[in-house]
Simulated assay, not measured.
Amino acid sequence: MKLMLTAFSVMLAASVASAQQATPDNPLVEGPTWNELKDDIVGKTALLDGAALFSVTAPYRANDAATVPVTIEQREPAAESIDSIKLVIDENPAPVAAEIRFGPSMAPLKFETRVRVNQYSNIRAIAETPKGTFMTGRFVKASGGCSAPATKDPVAALNGMGEMRLKLFDRKESSSNNRREAQIMIRHPNYSGLQRDQITQLFIGANFIAQLEVKQGDDLLFAVNGGISVSENPVFRFSYTDNGAPDITVHAVDTDGNVFDRVLPKTPPA
């Protein structure tokens, strides 16, 4: 009996490993929604295939539809700069999740954030470059992200609103540049307007970070025009060339008119 259970465990482990290895890639899926949205988002702009210029990484099946990680990364460091990105989630109530503008220090681009996905949907990154507009993306299986309950009750969420944290990762140095990787977390409920108060069952009014600007010294790192699809407590992880400024400054404005200005030292206090 023991031998049978052991053999079964081995077979089960092998089956799971095989299934993990066989997990399909999740390229964009053709569907009618994008055809309806396209003109409103990009007009008559010709969209070039962006797969050779940059990658979009997102899970095939999301663990949490309210916090789906999306990473955009240039494939060739020497390639032309990406000036801005429109992040589009086809099937969300407000499909344009964010419009993000990048400063020169962000090239070559590596940028990650987390979004809400309301139902099975394509997630597209539309990149503006000096040579044209490029698009690629991923299809993600997730549902209910825009109406998922907030992790804190409204009173507790508002009490800590505007707190920010900067995390720095290992410095990447070479003879020609000084690349660093950082992560900024902003405490904000980013209410979508589709969530209910768990006690009263009334809808919580939309209130999200609409404008965000991140700088090192006087140099822009990135600026975001956000919407309801950016997750609660927004997180932005990015690579940049350090210009020697001692601080990263963040300026954020939400749709209720609250303004949050923070100075985040690159070197944590001893």
Score class of each variant (00 low, 15 high):
Met1Val: 11
Met1Glu: 10
Met4Arg: 15
Met4Thr: 15
Thr6Gly: 00
Ala7Cys: 08
Ser9Met: 14
Val10Met: 12
Ala13Phe: 12
Ser15Asp: 00
Ala17Gln: 14
Ala17Ile: 15
Ala17Asp: 11
Ala19Leu: 05
Pro24Gln: 13
Asp25Gln: 08
Val29Ile: 13
Gly31Arg: 12
Trp34His: 04
Leu37Ile: 06
Leu37Glu: 01
Lys38Gly: 06
Asp49Asn: 09
Ala51Leu: 08
Leu53Ser: 04
Leu53Met: 05
Ser55Pro: 03
Val56Asn: 03
Ala58Cys: 02
Tyr60His: 10
Tyr60Pro: 01
Asn63Gln: 07
Asp64Cys: 04
Ala65Phe: 00
Arg75Ile: 12
Arg75Cys: 04
Ser84Asp: 09
Lys86Pro: 00
Leu87Gly: 00
Ile89Cys: 01
Asp90Phe: 01
Asp90Tyr: 01
Val96Lys: 06
Val96Gln: 08
Glu99Gly: 05
Glu99Cys: 04
Ile100Lys: 08
Pro104Cys: 12
Ser105Thr: 12
Met106Ala: 03
Met106Asp: 01
Leu109Thr: 11
Phe111Lys: 14
Tyr120Thr: 14
Pro130Ser: 00
Lys131Arg: 10
Gly137Glu: 02
Ser143Ala: 09
Pro149Trp: 10
Ala150Asp: 05
Val155Trp: 06
Asn159Lys: 09
Met161Thr: 14
Asp170His: 07
Ser175Gln: 15
Ser175His: 14
Ser176Glu: 14
Arg180Val: 12
Glu181Val: 15
His188Gln: 02
Pro189Ala: 04
Leu194Asp: 01
Ile199Tyr: 11
Thr200Leu: 09
Phe203Gly: 06
Ile204Ser: 03
Asn207Leu: 10
Ile209Cys: 05
Ala210Ser: 13
Leu212Asn: 07
Lys215Thr: 15
Phe222Tyr: 14
Phe222Ser: 08
Ala223Leu: 12
Gly226Tyr: 07
Pro234His: 03
Tyr240Pro: 04
Ala245Thr: 13
Asp247Val: 13
Ile248Leu: 13
His251Pro: 00
Ala252Cys: 09
Asp254Pro: 02
Asp256Val: 09
Phe260Ala: 04
Arg262Lys: 10
Leu264His: 08
Pro265Cys: 03
Ala270Ile: 14
